[in-house]
Simulated scan of single mutants.
Amino acid sequence: MPYISFGINEKTVTAAALGISFISLMLSFTSTGLGSFKIVVLAVCILCLIFNAVVYQVGFFILPFITGILKVREIRTGGFEIPPSQDVILKRVGGVYYSAQFQYAKLYESAAAGVQEEQTSYMDLWERAVASIDYPFKFCLISYPEDIIKFREDTETNRAAAQLRLGREREKPRPDAITLDKWEREVAKQNELLARLSSGEKPLGTLMYIMTMAVGVSPAAAIAAVKGQANELKATFSNALNVEISDLKGEDMKKCFDWEVAFPPALKDLKGSI
C-alpha cells in the first residue's frame, strides 16, 4: 500500500470528529424522511464525540496507531518527514537519510538534593554514563518556576508519608536495616528541601528530553540505526542513574522537535503542552 502524504495531528483529528458530529446532529434534527436512518445518524454523532474525547485524553497513543494502519506520513516544512509510526523524523540530505528520535527522561532523584557525598557520586556516575556513549546525542533541559505553595505542600506530604513508613518499620520486632536507611534518607531529603524553601530558595521544575540522530542510505537503514542508538541510551542511563527513559511518539515527539527552534515563552503555555 503506498504512503499518503498528509499532515495529521490531534487538532485535525478532533476538528474532523467534531465536524462530523455537528453535521450528523444537524441532519438528524433538520432533515425529514430519514426514518430509521435517523438512529444511525445519531449513533455516528455519539461515536464521533466519544472518539473525540478519547483522542483528547490519549491522542499521543491513538494517532500513531491510526497513521500506522492508514500508512499516512506527514511532510513538514524544510523537507522533514514523519513516517506512519510517528516515532522518528526523517530528512534526505545529499543522497542519504538522517533520522532523529526523541526520548523523555524522568529523574527520580536530583543531584542538588542530598549530602555532598551523594551529589559527588551522582555526578561521577553521570560523567561515566556520558563518556560511554561513542556517538553524538543531545540532552535538553527546560527549567521553569514551580508554585511555591503547592511545592511546599507536596514536600510536607512526602515527608509525612516517609515518616509514617519509617515509624512502622521501627515498630517491627526485627526492623530491616536497609529499609530503615531508605526511609531515613527520604525524611532527611524532604527536610532539606523544606529548609531550602524556608531560606528563600525558589523551586524549579524541569522538563528533560534526549535527542539522537543517525544516518543511513535508505529510510529503513536510518530508522534502524537511530533506534539502535536510542535503545543504547535507554539502557545506559537507566542502569547507571536513577532515570526512566521512554520513547516519544506522535504529538509529544513533534513538540520536542518544534522546541529545537523555539519553546513556549509563557509558563502556562509550557505546562499546558506537557
Rank of each mutant, 00 (worst) to 15 (best):
Y144L: 02
A266R: 13
G272F: 05
W259F: 14
V243C: 07
E74F: 01
A221P: 03
I39M: 10
S36Y: 10
P265T: 13
F60N: 12
G68I: 03
L241R: 08
T120E: 15
S85V: 05
V93L: 14
L18R: 12
L27F: 00
Q119Y: 07
T30I: 03
N239P: 02
F139D: 11
T30N: 01
K11V: 11
A17Q: 07
A224S: 14
E127G: 09
E118H: 09
A43Y: 02
L233T: 04
F61K: 11
E127F: 11
N52E: 03
R152A: 15
I23E: 05
Y135H: 13
K172A: 15
L70R: 08
V226Q: 07
L194T: 07
A161R: 05
P173I: 10
D124A: 15
A220D: 14
T157W: 00
Y122T: 15
Q229H: 14
V115F: 07
R174Y: 14
L49Q: 02
L90P: 06
I4A: 13
E232D: 14
A195N: 12
R76H: 10
Y144P: 05
W183H: 12
P84H: 10
E74G: 04
C48D: 02
I69A: 13
Y98H: 15
V13F: 09
E146V: 09
V55Q: 03
Y144V: 05
E146P: 03
R76P: 00
N9E: 11
V215S: 03
F151N: 10
K255C: 04
E232T: 14
G33K: 08
N242Y: 09
S24E: 01
C45K: 02
L207Q: 12
K271S: 04
S36T: 11
L63H: 05
W259R: 07
N191G: 04
K38H: 00
L197Q: 06
S24L: 02
S246T: 15
T77Y: 06
R73K: 14
A160G: 04
Q163D: 06
K254F: 07
L233A: 01
I50Q: 02
L164P: 00
T206D: 05
G205P: 02
E146W: 02
L25E: 04
Y104L: 13
L107C: 03
A131N: 14
I223C: 06
S85D: 15
E186F: 01
E74R: 12
S132G: 09
A105T: 01
N239H: 13
